[in-house]
Design a protein around this nucleic acid. Structure first.
Lengths: 207, 207
DNA sequence: AGATTGAACATTTCATTGATTATTCAGTTC
DNA sequence: GAACTGAATAATCAATGAAATGTTCAATCT
């Protein structure tokens, strides 16, 4: 059995345990037992318990990322709508995941605390998507910005609140969605007065 | 001696102790002793220890708020500059306060945790300033937005990261300043292409 | 010889308990 | 009788150590 196969088996066993009993309540011995091996042997495949959790999170996140990549190029939508879909998908995913699943919440906290680079890696991944969205948008004449990498960072800064919503406030999802919609409008249209057409196309009215 | 006088005396004594030894390391008996009274007597003036801390924080914050109100109407500046000054003052104040003073950091955490309404109250205060800034800006033709109360909320949402910077990341102040500058530009100008004049006036170049 | 084991080791977690401290209030003072 | 005290009470914190668990590695197996 190849090394990768065994890794996969371990990840599967750990996933079951973690989601059932929680990260802290499952022991390495149990995961090893599920895989019919000794605790010590796990360490030939993973440096430690946390790395198993990280592998699970990575696997899960990569599915999500794939979904985001698709949302960023949905046919028949303009870039504003695509950006909207990206940001809302992000909000809803984390909200549901962490809201209704205390086990996932525990794992997210452990990883965020012990592996801060993980969050940075996620941000960097999504930033790549944003950059290509901005490039596409410029070609279409929809958005305009000098430095796309920088602008993507700023979009992420401005929407930080919606990426880890429970860290901030006890707001409900509907309230968060209203806020995100507002922030998005602000980011797209800006405060400065300019061509009326764009705004009305978005279905907003200006007093 | 009037009730308010005594309250002031207690607040002063507690302020000295808290900033010297920290909130958790000072006892009610010590504060009472500094005021030449028994511990029990403190409770005729404050419901509890936390309320003394809150009184200190309120007093301190109200000075800051006064400063912000002035910044929002500085003569010889346009509204974009005033908004800039407001947001940067906010960032720098909390950054310095919490960065170099572990005692203040402790108190901020205790209050944030035990009295979540306090943070909301601060946000509401600053929102009032933002709303009047937006009104002024509209009269001047500088900014334009449908609902000023809502827009102020969105500005706060988008700049959340800079209001409690140490909660998020271990970014240095200069890095945070660069980011805030970028977010501000986005908020003001938006992503949509529009009148070139405004941007150049701000000293930015578009590729 | 490389894979695997499981007992040994080191670290963390957890409940227990003793001490400290916030809070209360019956009693004292003026 | 209103203001105040300080001992009594209740809640919290810190220290302790025992149990549990992550990790290592010498010994074993194939």
């Amino acid at each position: 059995m190849s090394k990768d196969k065994v890794r996969g088996q371990i990840v599967e066993a750990a996933k079951k345990r973690f989601s059932h009993f929680g990260y802290s309540k499952t022991t390495m011995a149990e995961v090893a037992g599920d895989c019919c091996m000794s605790p010590g042997n796990l360490y030939r495949f993973f440096p430690g318990k946390l790395d198993i959790a990280e592998a699970i999170a990575t696997e899960d996140y990569e599915k999500h990322l794939e979904h985001l990549r698709k949302l960023a190029v949905t046919p028949g939508k303009n870039e504003r709508e695509r950006l909207h879909d990206l940001l809302f998908e992000e909000l809803r995913r984390t909200y549901h995941k962490l809201e209704k699943d205390p086990r996932a919440f525990e794992m997210a906290n452990v990883i965020a605390h012990e592996r801060p680079e993980f969050a940075n890696w996620m941000l960097a991944n999504e930033r790549k998507i944003l950059v290509s969205l901005l490039e596409e948008a410029e070609q279409r004449g929809e958005f305009q910005c000098a430095d796309k990498e920088l602008t993507a960072e700023m979009i992420q800064s401005a929407t930080m609140k919606f990426r880890y919503p429970q860290l901030w406030s006890k707001l409900t999802l509907p309230k968060l969605e209203v806020e995100l919609e507002g922030v998005l409008s602000l980011l797209v249209n800006g405060l400065c007065p300019h061509a009326q057409a764009k705004r009305e196309k978005m279905g907003e009215t200006v007093a």
